[in-house]
Amino acid sequence: MNLQEEKISLAQILMETNDPELIRSIREILRERKPSDFWNKLSSEEKAEIEEADKEIAREETTSYENFIKKHR
């Protein structure tokens, strides 16, 4: 059975159940497996640095990789 067939099979089983506790348990399992946003794991200092970099990019205060490397060789 491929992944799509497995998902359909699980959905059918879920539709047939009348056990609210089982449904709550499945919901919690799926929520726990959901990947979290990396932004929420950053410190406030890291977030501030990224936000400042975004502003610099918007103001076109950037340099190309090639120019950066030339200055540091």
Rank of each mutant, 00 (worst) to 15 (best):
L42R: 03
K55D: 08
K70R: 11
E16H: 11
I50K: 02
N67R: 06
W39K: 00
Q4K: 12
E49T: 05
N2Q: 04
E51D: 13
E66R: 10
I8R: 06
T17M: 05
R33C: 07
I29V: 10
I50N: 02
T63Y: 03
E32Y: 03
E61R: 15
S36W: 00
S44Y: 00
W39G: 00
N2R: 06
E5T: 08
E5C: 01
E51G: 00
R59Q: 12
E6R: 12
A58G: 02
K7W: 09
E51N: 08
Y65L: 13
I50E: 01
N67L: 14
K41F: 03
I29N: 03
T63F: 08
S44L: 06
E52P: 01
L30V: 08
L3V: 06
L10G: 06
S44P: 10
Y65D: 04
E66P: 02
L14I: 13
E52N: 11
P35K: 10
L3Y: 08
D37F: 02
R31N: 11
S25V: 03
K71N: 10
I23E: 07
D37R: 12
I29H: 04
Q4E: 14
K47F: 09
I57N: 01
M1W: 02
L42M: 14
F38S: 10
A58K: 14
R73L: 15
M15W: 05
P35I: 11
E61M: 14
L22Y: 10
A11N: 08
S64I: 02
E60P: 00
L22E: 08
K41P: 01
S44H: 03
A11P: 05
M1C: 02
D19H: 08
I50G: 02
L3H: 03
P20Q: 09
I50Q: 04
I29Y: 07
Q12D: 12
Q4V: 12
D37Q: 04
K41A: 13
L42S: 01
E52V: 04
K7C: 07
E21L: 12
A48Y: 06
K47H: 06
E6A: 11
L10E: 05
Q4N: 12
S25Y: 10
E46P: 02
T17V: 13
E46G: 10
A48C: 02
Q12H: 04
E21P: 00
N18L: 11
A58T: 05
L30Q: 06
M1S: 09
K41T: 09
A48L: 11
T17P: 08
I26K: 03
N40Q: 09
E51V: 04
P35E: 12
L30G: 02
K7Y: 14
T17R: 04
K47R: 15
A58E: 15
D37H: 06
K55T: 07
E56Q: 14
E16D: 13
S25P: 00
A53G: 12
I57C: 01
I29K: 04
A58C: 01
E52T: 10
E6H: 07
W39S: 01
F38M: 12
E28P: 00
